[in-house]
Amino acid sequence: MRAVLSVSGVSMDFGGLRALDSVDMEVREGEIVALIGPNGAGKTTFFNCITGIYAPTEGEVFVSPPGRDRINIRHRKPNQVTGLGLARTFQNIRLFPSMTALENVMIGRHCRTRAGLLGAIVRGPVTRREEKGIVERAYSLLVKVGLGRWANEVARNMPYGAQRRLEIARALATDPFLLLLDEPAAGMNPQETQDLKALVTRLRKEFELSILLIEHDMKMVMSVSDRVVVVEYGKKIAEGTPAEVSADPQVIKAYLGEESDA
């Protein structure tokens, strides 16, 4: 299995605080990897380092888009990283609240379409075809995540669970090969979490995705992921299959709490 994302020795300092301390990890093609750890362990910081929102203080981040050599993305801007095929969702939902669900997903198509100023003004056949393609693609993605009937609703007015899924649809619109989900199940009830789990597994198959997700819901983490990486205080403390990790005494001490949970 080839690694689509490989991170080596990434550290991130905020002033005197070391939020990440030389973290190494890998996501292989078609894998679902879960990144877990107590609150404040540096999981979201790690996401931000990969996606270019932060520039890591040290270390390298490599991605290997399908059919291309691996590329160091340490100094790339977020939009360039997305252009390479990494798409993410946010822990605290970041939709465009006054735009409709459809329009939100359409924005995701931005980096895969071309029409510029001239195209916008002239609106020739190429531009019109492109626009039509954007709308069709956006709608089909909405249907795929089960939001078809919300298409014309303003994002602000959608129920919480639907907003979470809309974020996923929007991320998918950028044609990613690696999807980064930041706590997709946060604030969901058990039923919604179940649905989400099914959605994630299905999307992986359908879009041939690799997925890296941050999650606190242990049931979801254990059942959905192929591998689990555990961080605490910015350091990686364990890595392995869900079974291995949940048996690891260090992890139990740091995070899972009770020994009987293993």
Partner: peptide
């Protein structure tokens, strides 16, 4: 025309959430 175009849409989204826009690949 500009308002209803790909760029106009991006502009609108940019006003709502810049970080999300960048994460969606908008320069």
């Amino acid at each position: 025309r500009f308002q209803d175009s790909r760029v106009g849409r991006a502009l609108l989204a940019l006003r709502e959430d810049e970080i999300a826009c960048e994460a969606m690949g908008i320069d």
